[in-house]
Design a protein around this nucleic acid. Sequence first.
RNA 1: GGGAUCAUAGCUCAGCUGGUUCAGAGCAUCUGCCUUACAAGCAGAGGGUCACAGGUUCGAAUCCUGUUGAUCCCACCA
Length: 878
Amino acid sequence: MELAKKYDPKTVENKWYAYWIEKKYFESKINLNKKAYTIVIPPPNVTGVLHMGHMLNNTIQDVLIRRARMLGLNACWVPGTDHASIATEAKVVKMLADRGIKKSDLSREDFLKYAWEWKEKYGGIILEQLKKLGASCDWSRTKFTMDADMSEAVLDAFIDLHKRGFIYRGYRMIHWDPIGKTALSDEEVIYKEANSQLVYVKYYLENSKDYICIATTRPETIMADVAVCVNPNDERYKQLIGKKVIVPIVNRAVPIIADEYIDITFGTGALKVTPAHDIADYELGLKYKLPIIIGLTEDGKISKDAGAYIGMDRFACRKQIIKDLTENQLVEKIETIKNKVGHSERTDAVIEPYLSHQWFVKMKDISKPALQSVLEHDVKLIPDKFINTYKHWMENVKDWCISRQLWWGQRIPAWYNSNGDIAVCKTYQEAELYFQNNKLSTEDIKQEEDVLDTWFSSWLWPLTVFDSSVIKNGISNANEDFKYYYPTNDLVTAPEILFFWVARMIIAGYLWGNGKPFTNVYLTGIVRDKLGRKMSKSLGNSPDPLDLIDKYGADAVRVGMLFSSPAGNDLLFDEEYCVQGRNFSNKIWNAFRMIKTYEVSEKEPNLYQLQAIELFENKFNIELKNINNLFDKFRLNDALMSTYKLVWDDFCSWYLEAIKPENFSEGISRKVIEKTTMLFENILKVLHPWMPFITEEIWHLMKEDNQSDLIVSEWVELTTVNENTLKIYNSLQQIVAQIREYRSSLVISPKEKLLWKEAKTESGAYDEWIEKLSGLSPKTLLNAGAAISGKAIITPTRTIYIDLPKHLSQVVSGKEKEKYTQELEYLKGFLESVRTKLSNERFVQNAKPELLEKEKQKEQDTLSKIRAIEEQLKILID
RNA sequence: GGGAUCAUAGCUCAGCUGGUUCAGAGCAUCUGCCUUACAAGCAGAGGGUCACAGGUUCGAAUCCUGUUGAUCCCACCA
């Protein structure tokens, strides 16, 4: 068989993905003999495109799912997409604008028709991209948050919550996005630091030449001012309380009121009160029963009620007002200050506090069990540092504004009659009936125009993907799938959406699922570039994941991403990681090539080969145990690194090197090759979750006559670990390393065999193995009293002498002697410290027994080493 | 403004309830090698006052206090 020297992922990956799909390996069906292991995907935006964050996130999920599958669990990974109300609607609006169509010219129905067309055309690309990554999702279960049944469930949830008194409609100050023209929840507002101009404006007292100066960063709201507020304890203004001032521009007289809320030290200590456009002002307005003037329109322009600058954009107006006020000598000064300005998470528009009718979920009571479950580790956050953040949020949770002034989404199932009475139900008929039964007007019944926040559908995701009727019918009436797969096991997501999504899913789990929706929440970091900047389109610092896959192969990109991303830590992405991943792929490929292509002989195995097998098998088991352990703790990058070292160092560098025959022409014993093949198969299994494609490819190339597939083969079973053999292995490696170092320092060719000696022969069980790996001739017995030129390798149990090659001068030997004199000093100091410790009564009394033992052992080891060095200093030639 | 987390080799990170064979790994760097699996490789090497200052202790990278610096979350400072 001809095998390329370098592994080429391109020809391999598509083939195996198609094969796995064809064999339906990703599909999970109820099997009561198996335990279910379930993950629901964090549904990406339906119109989204795969970015590095998705890559990281989904790679982790795939690793978990593939390993679970191999562990014999019934692994089920449910994929799907999210309708992403604001983001998608914005995209559709833009698409229409490009075609010269305005949203405002369309009816709701027509707009939705376009939106669905758009979704059908561009939606779900991201799922196709996930396939390139190797994601083993059960595609037959693909869900969309606006599938008919999923939407039904959302409405059911709304109706149910309303019935239970957890939903209300209120006229409240909310965050308004003037670009998306919709309300946002608190969580959708991102505060960014900005340099703002703090304008000091003069408000003249009524019929007076005196004025109060007021500082504001939003002069465009001046027209909506209804009062000026000062602190009652402020000596400067005390005598003015109750008087009136004239609002500039509109020349309206408003009262001066007093409230302790005012910070005397900020600005001028006087605040203009604009109840419609500031949350704090709104509170003041309520408290002092002030009128409300709405000065802005929903698209961020100056409203009619403002009385001036009508129709002007808010930012243009700000400039103009500053200019006009300055011209009229009404500006005392302008300062530049740093403050935080709220932006829309989706459209990046500067948020306006806005007064409007919205729907809210009362969060306080329903979040209690969800808080408990995390505090009691029933739901585990990984890493657990997020528990604090979670706790803080949950304890201070605010009501959730769930209405959005959009069309793309689930329309709120609420109806109004001509009197503004509300019926919460799905259909017109039900609404009519409700109004009738309650003796209310049935005139002009209209459905609420608003849709629900996207998160109001995604918080049901784990509950409804298996049975969308559970919300309505309760879990006791749920279908078999739900009963088998729910609750899910692990959730892998970004900490950014801990509150948006994770917390709310847990809440929903307790509301409708009778408990937690998942057990472990693995929080990934954010993918940043190597300068630590968040990857973003605008910065152009995000590589296209598909390009990376194309360049390095999916396996390489997968491990590349995981090499350096512990849970909760941001990943500073560098393409170097992919290079490392590619090199690793190649290493695995070449290990396979060696096993596959070496000459085979019918000879019995050599001793060093048998030893190599023994040593490696044991090492493999120790590492497997370790790796399993790391998986259990979700320390995935450590598990990967251990696997990497096991394969590269222990298998390739030590084991494969050790079994090579002295002469190529000898060939390798068939028995050794067979054994090696078995060992390599185990390696492939351990590698498979990380690198599914290359491992499946090699698996099949190795077992030409075998029909088995790696993806569904069993994870390697752990056998007993022999600690003693491990010790031997480690000490042998140390010996070999020291000999190699010696060779390297003297620039001795690897081909040159060195002579070695040892006083005793009974400890030489692994001598052949050592000779093989460090290029030594067969060992000879050291004559008592003979002088030595060269190097002494000293371990606690044995001292080995490497002869200096004839052509090298004895100067080298003198240097060795010097080195050992230094080491002797260090060891003596070390012994001293160990002994001080051991003679310290308080240490002996307080230390744990096993620690004491360890210290005693150290003492012994050091002693014997000192003796050995002293011994060899005597016989080494100067 | 409140809260949380963190600071260990050039980079990314391990170091569990304090124990000196505990200062580590991978990458990068340097040196020598194209040795019939692999130069996408092999064999070696160098690199750290564990942010700073105190303290507790027989013993501190690890615990405590303070300082400095970074990150994140929350919050209506006009």
